[in-house]
Design a protein around this nucleic acid. Sequence first.
DNA 1: CTGGCTTCCGTAAACGTTTACGATACTATG
DNA 2: CATAGTATCGTAAACGTTTACGGAAGCCAG
Lengths: 351, 351
Amino acid sequence: MAVEETGKMKGIRRLAEHLDISIGTVSRALNGKPDVNEETRKRVLEAAESLGYVANQSGRSLRKGSTGVIAFMMQTGTEITGQGDTFFMSVFDGVQTVFARHKLDLMVLLCSSEEDPLAYLKRVVARGFADGIILSATRRHDERFELLAKHKIPFITLGRSLSDVGQPWIDLDFEGMAETAVDRLVAHGHRHIAVTRPHDDMNLGYVFVDRCREALARHGLTLDESHIFRSTPNQAGGYQIARELLACEERPTAILLVNESITIGFYRGLEEAGLRPGKDIAVIGRKSPHSQFLSPSLTCFSLSLRDLGISLAESLLATIPAYANLYPHRSERFLWPMELVAGESDSFDLP
Amino acid sequence: MAVEETGKMKGIRRLAEHLDISIGTVSRALNGKPDVNEETRKRVLEAAESLGYVANQSGRSLRKGSTGVIAFMMQTGTEITGQGDTFFMSVFDGVQTVFARHKLDLMVLLCSSEEDPLAYLKRVVARGFADGIILSATRRHDERFELLAKHKIPFITLGRSLSDVGQPWIDLDFEGMAETAVDRLVAHGHRHIAVTRPHDDMNLGYVFVDRCREALARHGLTLDESHIFRSTPNQAGGYQIARELLACEERPTAILLVNESITIGFYRGLEEAGLRPGKDIAVIGRKSPHSQFLSPSLTCFSLSLRDLGISLAESLLATIPAYANLYPHRSERFLWPMELVAGESDSFDLP
DNA sequence: CTGGCTTCCGTAAACGTTTACGATACTATG
DNA sequence: CATAGTATCGTAAACGTTTACGGAAGCCAG
């Protein structure tokens, strides 16, 4: 065997030559395999560190069949999801703390607003980018579910869908939000409560509105169809909702804003008409980085996005054979609770 | 040669058998190489389409040495950059429209707030993930620049740095913002103008504050050191700035908010003291999804984030040999202009 | 008919890993 | 001392592509 040959080869081969041992042993040493002397393992690790060696991803995943990468697919153009500013960043942060434990890499895949999400995902799948996938912006009918199921790729979704194929999911507890909010508003004397609903094809719209209706019914109240407002999930949409609400013949005395990113537009719309949340109309929304700095501060539903990310990651890993045993007690699918944070925007009583 | 053998092999080999031609020809046909009959090329493409074949990424990039992936590195925890998700989402959208033309994939790499960005990037580089890298959240002194230069990996940065190694960059034109804003405020009679500055290690802070000072000097005015406010780039930081400003002995009559995500907190801080932007104090900031729905609407500097993304992508490709000839006229490094959008928050004159 | 193009295609060697398998030396056991 | 077992390591074959090379036709000019 060639000794001390300063060949300009790359990668593990070079490292092996430098140490004068075989590449097989080097590989085993680096990957923590058993068949290697502890002392040589130490030498290998030190040499790798000092030479800055890291296994080439392509070679490794070609051989192993897995990539060590988990993809989080989302859409650019937040117009769809209606989540604002830092929602996803916080979720990612949680996801990554879990992945870091297993030397997995999170990779965010952005499906451009111009591209068909299904076609995009097909490419991702076929190219074999990721060992697992987290899907967001799930639609009420979402073909991506079947695609991933067909290819037997482990995945989890942030959001439910009618296209459920038995994969795990986590969704925000909009049901709980609906009930808590309705009960609270009714307790304050409100009888005419309006709600918003997002994009027609988003599942949560149905869930949320239906549950609001049920909650109202328990109090002997009904949800007026003209009090269900729909808009684009952005500030402009919020503004529009405010104007529509003001134009109602029988104006509601309270409203539930289910999207994060419409609040400011809604506030503005109210103010232009001389109305003030918490005084002339009760407003309950979702917590966001600015909700407590609005004036008046927003009564809102809050959740730990970072913990949500952690759960998402752990539940996904629980479905991947190589990691499943580490997360045995992970429940497969559940509603993520939200907690009400009282602000000033609904703090008044009706007679 | 085996004909019609329905072997359960994977990938290109299976496709080749199905067509009864060699894998070499199949590969050439798919990759648009010249040495292949146009008719067989058509057959191959159709078969690939119908069988849903897409070349395996690992095999391909192992052989080619390139991955077809461009990475955009950012930090989770926007506490550093002060940009919200929507900022980057729009930029990504632009980046992707360019990459799509070349069948390149954008991949967003999130460096967790707990991890050292340099160490993270080292791993990315060594593993050979990407053919090129876009760096954001550049620091005043940023070791990542040297790392990428040493490994000869094409990259571009969104933001300047003292660690410049000759790579292309694009940065927002904070200089222009400073001058335009100062001139405008001075024209309205303001003599005591405050400014904010972001994280100490962010380059833009120095650039912005220095240029404000210069612009004021041209009008014979000085920037009071106690009127330079520093905070975390989030709403809480904006709130804090407002309180500090109100505590000034000689209170400034105008302020420039250089971060986009502190405005709401700042507004709130003012309001609690009974002050109103555009009436008691002039406020100029950065455009964000909600700036026009604030009350009073924010006079702000706006830019096309999508176009910024396009430029970023094209300028990066111009430095990658395989694409360089397609973008010959790309300027290497430039300041991205911002345009002033008049709102109500600075619309009053001082005597 | 010969020689040289051109056009098309098959062969096989890479790319950098991981890992099944076998080989060697040493230890323990009878 | 023979044998079985163990600890450690080297060898070589994959993984799925791309591509340099060469070969087999077909064509045309001489």
